[in-house]
Amino acid sequence: MNLEKASIDIVSGSKAGTQIRVLFNPTEYTLDRSNTYKATSIPGLGGPLFHFINGEADSLAMELFLDDYTDQAPGGKTVRDRVDEIAALLEIDNNLHAPPIVRFVWGKLSFTAIIEKLTRKLTLFKPDGVPARATLNVSFKEYRTLPELTINPRLQSADKSKRRVIIGNDSLWLLASREYHDVNKWKVIAEHNDLDDPRDIAPGDWMTIPPLEQDNGSRRRV
């Protein structure tokens, strides 16, 4: 079976369609993902409540190796040429007014991203001082368009009023956290149920949970 080579493909900007071949495949790569949460302190609880804010973009990191003596790049490109070619992907493209979007492709892995960080380490030089060997540590940050981010958002709608019964040590803060994912929205529940004191509730009481309204008066999804 032939060894499939990895590549960095430029997918936007003035150089869209250009492919940068990776002559030495990486020996490993790291995929990283994280989420952002907000911690809110509630009086009387032993710890804060955590509310999901948004998902962060995936990150892909790897080490690439370039060597003039052990691999030959197409077109006679030297290590310095290839390092400069990859480093240029962090520069602002004239057509985009931003660095170009790229796609790292290796076998079944296809990762559309921008290059977030590039560290260049030159380890061998020719007699005239020209670099002949380099190690590149590259960090890619996933890129998705707005339609891609909004498709199947897995959000629930709060566009209908609901009725909830107070159980045990429930509070308006906990109720707002469960229904709106924001404890600060307890005032919405209090005002809708004519509560002057948010603590003036007891187990068995019924609360009406109103839909949230946006600034333009339309109902908001939460």
Rank of each mutant, 00 (worst) to 15 (best):
M1A: 11
L3N: 13
I10W: 07
V11M: 11
S14A: 11
K15W: 03
A16S: 15
A16M: 12
G17W: 07
Q19K: 15
I20Q: 05
I20G: 06
R21H: 07
L23V: 03
N25Y: 05
N25C: 09
D32Y: 00
D32V: 08
R33H: 08
T36P: 00
K38I: 07
A39T: 11
S41M: 11
P48V: 09
F50V: 03
F52P: 00
F52R: 08
I53W: 00
G55D: 10
A57F: 10
L64H: 04
L64N: 03
F65R: 07
L66P: 02
D67R: 04
D68I: 03
T70C: 01
D71T: 12
Q72L: 10
P74I: 04
G75Q: 05
K77Q: 10
V79W: 05
R80T: 06
R80Y: 08
R82A: 06
V83Y: 07
D84F: 07
A87H: 10
A88Y: 06
A88I: 10
D93E: 11
P100L: 08
P100V: 12
P100D: 13
P100K: 09
V102M: 06
V102Y: 12
V102N: 06
K108F: 11
T112D: 12
A113G: 08
E116A: 15
K117M: 13
T119K: 14
T119W: 00
V130W: 02
V130L: 11
V130R: 11
P131G: 04
A132I: 01
A132D: 06
T135N: 15
V138R: 13
K141G: 08
Y143W: 15
T145K: 14
T145R: 07
P147C: 06
P147W: 15
N152K: 12
N152H: 13
P153H: 13
R154D: 04
R154G: 14
S157G: 05
A158C: 15
D159H: 07
D159L: 09
S161L: 06
I166E: 03
I166L: 07
I167P: 00
G168E: 10
G168C: 00
W173D: 04
L175H: 01
A176F: 05
S177W: 06
R178F: 01
E179V: 00
E179L: 01
E179T: 00
Y180I: 03
Y180C: 04
H181L: 09
H181V: 02
V183C: 10
N184H: 10
K185N: 13
K187Y: 01
A190N: 02
E191N: 14
E191A: 09
E191I: 02
L195P: 00
L195G: 02
L195K: 10
D197W: 01
P203N: 08
P203Q: 10
M207L: 13
M207N: 01
I209G: 06
I209E: 03
I209F: 07
P211T: 02
L212F: 02
L212Q: 13
E213A: 13
D215N: 08
G217K: 12
S218F: 02
S218C: 01
R219I: 08
R221C: 02
R221A: 09
R221P: 00
